[in-house]
């Protein structure tokens, strides 16, 4: 369905299964970081009914038309796209807050994605939590999946479920191709991981068996950036999380940057967990 004419656009889904792990923050930060390198980026919020991306981007007062309006033919795509005032290469397609996820149709989303491919280098789809309709449609047309995971067992298991769905329920999977899956570990606290109070990066990678896109350390800067409506890579470019996102964006662009892993731990979270049980 999706035409590949014109530029070689990449559709990225930012997904996780579990809620509250940092999908929207990561979508905004990766989108801004890519736009800061000169790429044309469209951020699409698929969380119909619980939209947040417009707030994180500081565009909540500029939303006139949204994704559902475009799908239903009430507005043209160019009317609904909101161009960022700080980064002209970055545009936002907001979700509708007043509708529910059934307002998204497969063919409608396919058409919007196809139209965006003709205009942008990167289309970043911010998935809702869960594995219901909104999340399935957000991943449906993806070429690349950024799986956001927190270093704790429930997040890791939900991400594993999502990776299974990416391998079976996407257009690429149904054509016999694969979605390029990358792991973005967020809210990582090296000190707690060293004490075994949190899963280590090695534990997470061992379970999920997906290449690492980046590690974003836990930081109050992320919270203040969200409250200000400014992606962290614009708000505090020198902060550790902003550097993490900027490097992740460079890896998405194909650069081979080593991921700086924190020091190795003596005893992992998993062994502690199972050491106690029995």
């Amino acid at each position: 369905m999706e035409s590949m004419v014109g530029r070689m656009a990449k559709v990225v889904v930012v997904t996780s299964g579990k809620g509250g792990v940092g999908k929207t923050t990561s979508s905004a930060a990766l989108g801004a970081a890519l736009a800061q390198t000169g790429q044309k980026v469209a951020l699409v919020d698929f969380d119909v009914g619980l939209r947040n991306l417009d707030l994180i981007m500081g565009a909540e007062r500029r939303v006139v038309f949204d994704l559902v309006n475009v799908i239903h033919g009430d507005a043209r795509l160019c009317q609904a796209l909101i161009r960022d005032k700080r980064l002209p290469a970055l545009s936002l397609l907001a979700a509708s807050q007043t509708r529910d996820k059934d307002a998204l149709t497969h063919d409608g989303v396919a058409q919007v994605i196809a139209d965006l491919r003709a205009e942008f280098d990167w289309i970043i789809c911010d998935s809702p939590a869960g594995i219901e309709r909104g999340a399935m449609l957000a991943m449906r047309f993806a070429d690349v999946a950024v799986v956001v995971v927190n270093p704790e067992v429930s997040s890791v298991r939900d991400s594993d479920r999502i990776i299974g769905l990416l391998d079976s329920r996407t257009c690429r999977a149904e054509r016999g191709e694969t979605v390029d899956k990358r792991l973005l570990v967020t809210r990582f606290d090296p000190a707690r991981a060293a004490k075994g109070e949190m899963m280590s990066i090695d534990d997470v990678l061992e379970i999920l068996a997906v290449p690492l896109l980046g590690i974003i350390p836990e930081s109050l800067d992320v919270l203040s950036a969200s409250n200000l409506g400014c992606p962290i890579t614009l708000h505090r470019p020198a902060s550790p999380p902003a550097r993490g996102y900027a490097e992740a964006a460079q890896r998405l662009l194909g650069e081979e940057l080593p991921v700086r892993a924190p020091a190795a731990q003596r005893r992992g979270f998993m062994s502690r967990l199972f050491g106690k049980a029995a």
Partner: peptide, 27 residues
């Protein structure tokens, strides 16, 4: 030839199953 992910189910009544990779929690 790949890990069996959480939520996936491999059912093969015809004989042995070999998984090259992990079988995740919930699979």
């Amino acid at each position: 030839d790949r890990p069996v992910r959480s939520g996936q189910s491999i059912v093969f009544e015809g004989g042995d199953v070999t998984v090259i990779g992990a079988v995740a929690s919930g699979a």
